[in-house]
């Protein structure tokens, strides 16, 4: 099994390491903004352990998916509104 997978993040191809979380893949490539808050503020990773829900993004069309506890998959699409 190859060690890397490719995600589509806001339409761009991003290489990620198999086994890592979506949040880790985004942070490693310098992405910080994962969604906009209710009042339009940029938000990203915060608690990192699945508790605060502030790292959510739209993954494979599903909104409000926690990127910190979701592992990368080849071909996964991530929409961050950044």
């Amino acid at each position: 099994m190859p060690d890397s997978v490719v995600l589509q993040v806001d339409g761009a191809s991003v290489e990620a390491v198999r086994g890592e979380s979506v949040a880790a893949a985004l942070m490693r490539t310098g992405s910080r903004v994962f969604h906009r808050s209710r009042t339009g503020e940029p938000r990203g990773l915060f608690c990192g352990i699945g508790s605060c829900y502030d790292c959510h993004a739209t993954i494979d069309g599903r909104p409000h998916v926690r990127t910190c506890v979701t592992l990368v998959r080849d071909g996964m699409t991530v929409e961050t509104k950044s």
């Binding site: 940029p42 938000r43 990203g44 990773l45 915060f46 990192g48 352990i49 910190c68």
Partner: peptide
């Protein structure tokens, strides 16, 4: 709440 501000646990993970 700015992106880049995380809990210590997040950075550790």
């Amino acid at each position: 709440t700015l992106p880049g501000v995380v809990s210590c646990g997040a950075a550790q993970a």
